[in-house]
């Protein structure tokens, strides 16, 4: 039985559904590589979603929307940075507070923007390529932000593994005392990473409100930030695997809708649960082997740094 599922359409759908997760998870990956655990991804995403939508509507240009979303996400992230890096507050508690704050603030900002249509996102259309029967649909029929997300995965990989700045960032995450003694500004590096993470989460959120739905509604990120956090662990802090993880998690959502439309009698409750079940299973599998898990986790993750001497 094929349940009437078209694999090409399924893939095209999952790539779109995965894009917000991809941005948020890549941002968080860099943040964690620098030794900071920011659990406020959901809050930064929703702020990005509302700011991106508001600016996109006001300027009638989604491009400005995404820029504003990145800026808003970064500003909110820097608030987290201020609290955790200078005032040395607990990162877990501060991150959770950031999520709650972001959700409430976004609802407030978004009040005048409910029930408005956003400017439509142009698709990148390549003459001759987008028309190709299967390949055109698979590869050449998305909006620009989808390609940008994949490019960011490559850039993050290149930055972390092939550049001096990336090496410094990783050194800060692995052993902040050693990095400090070598003269690297631990706090400065971490703040930059936090701001980058916020900007990426903001873009991910704006993709939901400007491209995927496209409209603003309260709480519309609906837990995507938490899934992004799980993807970072799932990927064992490797950018390539973040792409796979985002596709897997996005794909589960699209697959359950396809199975339903195909008439498969799986109770909807279980199907809705699937992404979260997969998250739990993945976390259990990864943490089963403690040595392997800790091998890749940045050694100074979530540990506060206070320069002494």
């Amino acid at each position: 039985m094929d349940f009437g599922i078209n694999p090409v359409a399924l893939f095209a759908g999952l790539v779109v559904a995965a894009t917000p997760l991809l941005f948020a998870a890549l941002g968080e990956l860099v943040v964690e590589k620098a030794g900071v655990l920011n659990l406020g991804v959901e809050g930064m995403m929703i702020i990005g979603a509302v700011t991106g939508f508001a600016v996109g509507v006001a300027t009638a240009d989604p491009g400005f929307g995404f820029l504003a979303a990145a800026a808003a996400g970064a500003v909110l992230a820097l608030l987290f940075g201020l609290l955790t890096q200078f005032l040395l507050s607990n990162q877990v508690a501060t991150g959770l507070a950031l999520t709650l704050f972001g959700l409430g603030l976004a609802a407030l900002i978004g009040q005048p923007f409910t029930g408005i249509r956003s400017p439509s996102m142009p698709r990148v259309f390549v003459e001759g390529l987008s028309d190709l029967p299967v390949v055109g649909r698979l590869l050449f029929n998305y909006d620009l932000v989808v390609y940008l997300g994949l490019a960011m995965a490559g850039l993050v990989w290149f930055f972390l593994s092939r550049t001096r700045a990336g090496l410094i960032l990783r050194a800060v995450g692995e052993n902040h005392d050693a990095a400090h003694s070598l003269g690297y500004g631990v706090i400065r590096v971490r703040l930059m990473a936090i701001a980058f993470g916020g900007a990426m989460a903001g873009i991910g959120g704006a993709y939901i409100s400007l491209a995927r739905v496209p409209q603003w509604t309260e709480g519309m990120t609906a837990g995507a930030g938490w899934i992004a956090l799980a993807i970072v662990v799932f990927s064992a802090w490797r950018p390539g695997r973040v792409v796979l993880g985002a596709w897997l998690f996005g794909g589960v959502t699209i697959l359950q809708l396809n199975l339903q439309a195909g008439g498969l009698a799986v109770p909807a409750l279980y199907l809705s649960m699937l992404p979260y079940l997969v998250t739990i299973v993945v976390l259990v599998v990864i943490s089963a082997d403690r040595r392997r898990a800790s091998l890749n986790a940045p050694a100074c993750l979530a540990r506060p740094f206070h320069a002494t001497g």
Binding site: L10, G13, T253, N258, A261, G262
Partner: peptide
Amino acid sequence: WFNPALEADAAATLIEQ
């Protein structure tokens, strides 16, 4: 009753089918 992101994905899926 109200989940815009999921409703959007569901609509896109139905159109695909």
